[in-house]
Nucleic acid binder design. Sequence first.
DNA 1: GATGAATGAGTCTTCATTCAT
DNA 2: CATGAATGAAGACTCATTCAT
Lengths: 209, 209, 209, 209
Amino acid sequence: MASKQEIRSEETKRAILTAAADLFATRGFDTVSIREIAKAAGCSHTTLYIYFKDKEALLHHLSKEPLQSLALQMEEILSKLGQTPEENLREISRQFIHFCLRNRTMYTLFFMIKATRIDVEEPEKELQTLRNQLFGLLRQAVRRCLPSDIEEEKALAQARIYFYTLHGIVGTYTHSEEPLDSLMERLAPTFALSIDVFLAGSQKIMNRE
Amino acid sequence: MASKQEIRSEETKRAILTAAADLFATRGFDTVSIREIAKAAGCSHTTLYIYFKDKEALLHHLSKEPLQSLALQMEEILSKLGQTPEENLREISRQFIHFCLRNRTMYTLFFMIKATRIDVEEPEKELQTLRNQLFGLLRQAVRRCLPSDIEEEKALAQARIYFYTLHGIVGTYTHSEEPLDSLMERLAPTFALSIDVFLAGSQKIMNRE
Amino acid sequence: MASKQEIRSEETKRAILTAAADLFATRGFDTVSIREIAKAAGCSHTTLYIYFKDKEALLHHLSKEPLQSLALQMEEILSKLGQTPEENLREISRQFIHFCLRNRTMYTLFFMIKATRIDVEEPEKELQTLRNQLFGLLRQAVRRCLPSDIEEEKALAQARIYFYTLHGIVGTYTHSEEPLDSLMERLAPTFALSIDVFLAGSQKIMNRE
Amino acid sequence: MASKQEIRSEETKRAILTAAADLFATRGFDTVSIREIAKAAGCSHTTLYIYFKDKEALLHHLSKEPLQSLALQMEEILSKLGQTPEENLREISRQFIHFCLRNRTMYTLFFMIKATRIDVEEPEKELQTLRNQLFGLLRQAVRRCLPSDIEEEKALAQARIYFYTLHGIVGTYTHSEEPLDSLMERLAPTFALSIDVFLAGSQKIMNRE
DNA sequence: GATGAATGAGTCTTCATTCAT
DNA sequence: CATGAATGAAGACTCATTCAT
């Protein structure tokens, strides 16, 4: 069905994406040149421009898919029945952290990139939307672990604190050279503990007031 | 004692450092060009090379002093009498966060730069040492808030969790364009709350076990 | 006779030529890329190479036809009976100017391109020949308006002067963005006047001597 | 007085300008690359950017001076006493043609460049002004040769026709490879004759009406 | 006959850095 | 001590063109 050409094309595109993901992840967006990506992908740098209008277009393409699948997974977890909200938050956190560490640059790009500029075009807007969606989901997960009668303001503060924890964890290891598996094995308990500490502290303080 | 020349020389050097600090802080290390620094410092770009071997050397030089003074301040706080360990940790956290947000680029450079590579020369080693020292102080401050009989391993985990919170806070706002003052006014309570949540959660969990 | 394939092929070729003529005329030879032409012609850019060796080959091909038809028209006018030589020259001038302004790029290419280099291949030679033919016709038209007994040298000088006028008119408006129709409406009288001035002046001077 | 450095700098700048003028003149603005200019000037292409912000800046710089001096010369001639208007126009024409052929690209650039766009910045405006000034001077010179009581409209038409002649002359030989001197020697009489034809014709027609 | 894939040469431009003064 | 001059390496990107299908 798919002609040889189409296959080859698909391969090249995939090679570029893989190479770019890899390089962006290890070295950051700005530092990596298009020629490097091309070389890593085993093609000429001009070929890159056939598939992606821009270095930035490449980035957007690269980020959209994983982020969407992450959002999907998160929604799934959120809608699981038979879990306490706390278990739910733990699972969602675990998964979020794992995702971010597996897609290191993505992380930098998704969460640290300068907040929405107004003059940005479509593709960037799309990303921004996805980002907001993800944050919304996390916030929801946190909200459920808090007493339902607290003020919205306070819930927001707790969500922020939770984000700090996530961001802190991910940020700490984003630039580490340790492979993902070894990292997770070594620190997964600590990450889990982080969430537990947050939950315990958060609930104690909410009740205290 | 200091000849006129020496004074002038010192002035130029200082001008360069000030300009560089300013520019790095507002626009980031990579984005700022050496010529810009020189222009801002009111001297030729070649002059820069008289005082600093490198753009990077400039950065190292730039970071040393503030970091040292930070360490000093932290030590001071740590050695304060008449404070509970918790009050102590709150104060030290406040100060650390403030410092990091005031020296945004510095922060990125000090804390996110790839952990000590072996092939690195002197100046970077020095930074690394400072960095370790700072982390040691923070760790101490956390340790004091925990029951004194817990295993070292567990204390370390709590210190890590505390770091995550700090790193998360700082990382979240490092790239924000909001001026420091407005930022602090708006979020200082949330930052404080973060520490409280950590403390409450940490202690609850330590006792539970 | 012509198979379906041949017809289709012919259509594609025509589409390319039309598109190219259009683009060259409105935007100039250098500015237009081969991919643009292909897109405008509704085919792949590689297809272009089937029909034309080169971007330049395309141009030559493109110029040949209109130039030939121009030559034809000019010959027709020249052979008209019942016109004074002056009326003849006026008509031929009008037509020449109109042609040149309708085919702006062509003009640049036909009349301003560096005179025959020796190392040039066939197609360019052909163009050169056409060009010479056209000039010959114009020269003839001028010659007829002059006293028949003047030296050849002097007639040549007058022909040159006439060319200058034509070239000047066309050159002045070749790069104008004004549409052909509006341009002609606005300036046709001036163009006609130019020829009249030339004729009047030329004859006065020829007689004076 | 001028330090060695300043001299060298001046030399380089001059070399660049000379090379650029040369290349632009022979090959046109768009076709010439900055690297070529640099190579011809015997310096690195980056050096070029020290002296000129842009390829276009280079062009503007290149054009300003000669155009100004041309304007000056023309004004001088215009204000000469003891000449008939006709002699005046002849002299001014001679000089204008000579200038344009000596500064071939300049010519293309000054007279054929797309008429004032509104969004253009300072330097281009300056050029535009100069250009207009030159045209004004020529127009004046023509005006004086015409009966003083004719309508402005008609005078303008004559000025246009005169421009066509000039433009035609210059345009015809701009791309010629013949050296200026030989060219002038060969054709100066024809050029002079062109003006005479224009004058004779123009006056005859003006009187006839 | 027609096409998508791929490329190398080339465009302008910026930057950190060195050298002679 | 300080500087202007000059450079090479590198950046993103475009284009005409060829090859295998």
